[in-house]
Simulated assay, not measured.
Amino acid sequence: MTKQPNLPGSSNSVRSSFRNGPESPPHPRLVSIAVVLLWATALMQTLASVIATVYATSDARRESLLAQLAASGKPASKLEMMVSTSVVTVVVACIVTVGAYLVIAHFVGQGRSWARTLGAALALLTLVQLVGLQYPTGYPTLAQTVFGALAMLLCYLPGPNAYFAAVKESRNK
């Protein structure tokens, strides 16, 4: 079986021009590292969400919720609804955040400037998760925040910055 040539109308040609334009600049190592850090950030978010889900269903959390219900004069029958709401909130937030990090990683790898801007905004938003963090269960959240911030910082260094500009320029040709 012989290898098909890369003809102008072939799928290989379309795919490469779809990614970064007809003449993509070389992919810097720091951008590759940023992409791996974004994958690690998504992994840490998943781990933090598993820990949060376990906590949301724990006896300690149930006791805390019962005390809140008693203090507010609400019936204890609302406890299961509050636990379920907590779990659903954690799971939905996990799916959205992990999905966002993976999409951002994909497009940062392709040199899309909007992806690094969105990634920087997401990294800033995740700083909120550090409020009230308890250790040792908070280490995955701390790692997620550090990995995300470091990945975005790498994207704004001079080498990667030039890469993003070159990709943009090659797409405008």
Rank of each mutant, 00 (worst) to 15 (best):
residue 44 M to A: 14
residue 29 R to V: 10
residue 36 V to S: 04
residue 172 N to M: 14
residue 60 A to Q: 12
residue 128 V to M: 11
residue 123 A to Q: 08
residue 57 T to A: 15
residue 93 A to G: 13
residue 70 A to Q: 00
residue 41 T to C: 10
residue 51 I to V: 15
residue 38 L to T: 09
residue 111 G to I: 03
residue 72 S to R: 08
residue 149 A to D: 10
residue 8 P to H: 11
residue 172 N to L: 10
residue 39 W to G: 07
residue 119 G to C: 08
residue 23 E to T: 12
residue 104 I to D: 02
residue 124 L to T: 05
residue 34 A to T: 02
residue 88 V to F: 06
residue 78 K to C: 02
residue 50 V to A: 08
residue 11 S to H: 12
residue 141 T to F: 01
residue 95 I to L: 11
residue 114 W to C: 02
residue 18 F to V: 00
residue 129 Q to G: 14
residue 111 G to H: 06
residue 5 P to W: 03
residue 103 V to N: 03
residue 121 A to I: 15
residue 164 F to D: 09
residue 168 K to V: 00
residue 160 P to N: 05
residue 110 Q to G: 09
residue 27 H to Q: 13
residue 160 P to F: 13
residue 127 L to R: 07
residue 72 S to G: 01
residue 152 M to R: 10
residue 149 A to G: 14
residue 43 L to K: 02
residue 41 T to V: 04
residue 60 A to P: 09
residue 24 S to W: 06
residue 11 S to G: 03
residue 49 S to H: 02
residue 153 L to T: 14
residue 32 S to F: 07
residue 100 A to L: 12
residue 155 C to N: 10
residue 3 K to N: 11
residue 149 A to C: 12
residue 95 I to T: 10
residue 110 Q to A: 12
residue 6 N to A: 14
residue 118 L to T: 14
residue 74 K to M: 01
residue 134 Q to K: 12
residue 112 R to V: 03
residue 44 M to Q: 10
residue 76 A to E: 13
residue 140 P to E: 04
